[in-house]
Every structure is written in C-alpha cells, then in structure tokens.
C-alpha cells in the first residue's frame, strides 16, 4: 500500500456497545469490498482512554475519522449505510 492512494481510518468506539461492534464490522466489510489492500484501520476504544477523544473532538460514539487522504473527514454512526460511508469517505465504488 502506498501512502498516495491509501486510506488511513480511525474508528472511535466505546467498548463493546452494540453500535461500536456494528461499526467495526460494517467498516471492515466496506473496506474489504471497495478498498481491498488500500486501507488501514485504527480502532480507538474511548472506554479505555476517554482523553483520546480530544484529538478529533469526538462527541458521539461510534465516529469514523478519515485521516488520509486529506482533508480530514468524519462520519458519525454505526456505518450501516454503506452508501453514506462511501460518499462520506469519497470512495468511488469499483
């Protein structure tokens, strides 16, 4: 994966809440389908360290942040609407 075309994603979750679990599963499914081999996901559990929320002013959980490519983008929710996620992350379906 090159840095130019890769996606660096960070998903903020709160432990094992239903929406957090759903968001992780939905995100992986979307990335596998539309960004095979071009993504990297970092899951941040704010239950363990709430202070990490400060970096991206996280209020709602789950929240997905696209760190790369720039600009920074934010999607709130459990990512069950794949189309909304693709639009939100600027990913063109293959």
């Amino acid at each position: 994966m090159s840095e130019l075309d890769g996606y660096s994603l960070r998903l903020y979750v709160a432990g094992q809440t239903p929406k957090s679990i759903a968001a992780i599963a939905n995100l992986k499914k979307i990335c596998d389908k539309h960004l095979p081999g071009r993504y990297e996901i970092e899951i941040i559990d704010l239950m363990k360290d709430p202070a990490l929320a400060m970096r991206h002013q996280i209020v709602a959980i789950p929240t997905l942040i696209r760190q790369l490519p720039e600009p920074l983008k934010r999607i709130i929710g459990d990512l069950s609407n794949a189309e909304k996620v693709l639009v939100g992350l600027d990913i063109r379906p293959n």
Binding site: A53, T63, G77
Partner: peptide, 26 residues
C-alpha cells in the same frame, strides 16, 4: 447538527462529555 441528528436517529450509543476536572468521559 450531525451529532444531534445521529443522537435522534439512534445511530450512536455513547457520547463523550467534557468534565472540567476529570476531562472527557464516555
């Protein structure tokens, strides 16, 4: 707006609240 909408729609199940002394709290 997006946050409020997500709360209304039930898209989230946790929020981060700022506490002046303890800092952010889930």
């Amino acid at each position: 707006d997006e946050t409020v909408a997500a709360i209304h729609q039930g898209d989230i199940d946790a929020v981060v609240v700022m506490r002046s002394l303890e800092g952010p709290q889930v």
